[in-house]
């Protein structure tokens, strides 16, 4: 609880420092002071912090997952990890592409449809990877056989 209060306090301090013009305007007029400041900044100052770390964590995790099969061969845990990390990493990448080229503020309908479709597709991919890893040979063994042609 106390950390939330501290977050809110430091957030308002940051915002106040970022808009000196607003401060000057407020000190001149009490009517303006009562006017709510439009929410331009995200609701939480931690927004853009955790998800950035999450993205990097996925990227860092993909390094051992992609290198391990070259050293230890196929392993169910590596397949399980790849079947989660690759879809989530791809989901974030596709999301960034949609935000750039099909932004919701510019394409309100198509942008929302695409964003929702991405969630559906990623869900199906996660399910498909799990099914493939549990019912078939697994991702790494499949890629190996596809590559070198051995059964």
């Amino acid at each position: 609880m106390s950390s939330r209060i501290m977050c809110a306090a430091s957030r308002s301090a940051v915002l106040a420092a970022a808009r000196p013009s607003t401060l000057v305007r407020r000190s001149m007029s009490t009517a303006d002071a009562a006017k709510p400041v439009p929410a331009i900044e995200p609701k939480s100052r931690m927004h853009g912090s955790y998800h950035w770390n999450f993205e990097r964590a996925l990227s860092v995790a993909s390094i051992p997952l992609l290198v391990a099969p070259f050293i230890i061969g196929s392993h169910p845990l590596v397949d399980l990890g790849l079947g989660v990390v690759i879809p989530l990493h791809s989901h974030i990448g596709f999301g960034a592409i949609l935000q750039d080229y099909l932004a919701v503020h510019k394409y309100p309908v198509a942008g929302r449809i695409a964003a929702a479709s991405l969630y559906a597709a990623t869900g199906l991919v996660l399910y498909g990877c799990y099914q493939f890893n549990t019912n078939d040979v697994g991702i790494t063994e499949f890629v190996k056989r596809l590559w070198v042609g051995k059964q």
Partner: peptide, 17 residues
Amino acid sequence: IFYGGAIWYAIAPFHSA
């Protein structure tokens, strides 16, 4: 490509062989 293969498997499972 990864999404295509995984979604295909999710909807209509195939044999890897």
